[in-house]
């Protein structure tokens, strides 16, 4: 099973990278960009039997830093499920 972990900075945590990218977009002439936040996408390929609890624990223990980041788990179609 493919799983995508979306890690993003918590609201209120200043994002220096996002700010730099924002400036760069403005420099390129793009108007109307209100804000930019840079996150991280982690793709896992795990056994179909992997529990939601285990995925949650992976995020909390390592993949995200709960002091500054939030995470969202997106499960893609399991392998071997043919219509």
């Amino acid at each position: 099973m493919k799983v995508r972990i979306h890690v993003s900075l918590k609201p209120g945590v200043l994002d220096p990278q996002g700010r730099a990218v924002h400036h760069a977009l403005e420099g390129l002439g793009f108007v109307g960009v209100e804000d930019v936040r840079v996150g991280r996408l982690i793709e896992l390929d795990v056994a179909d039997s992997t529990s939601d609890e285990a995925l949650d624990e992976m995020c909390r223990k390592l993949l995200a830093n709960m002091v500054i980041e939030n995470y969202r788990i997106e499960k893609l179609e399991p392998k071997g499920v043919d219509a």
Binding site: V13, L14, P16, Q17, N65, V67, I68
Partner: peptide
């Protein structure tokens, strides 16, 4: 130390990048 939980908080990218 912060990542291991021995100290609170986190160290982020310098503000000036």
């Amino acid at each position: 130390l912060t990542e291991s939980g021995l100290l609170p908080g986190a160290l982020m990218r310098n503000i000036g990048q």
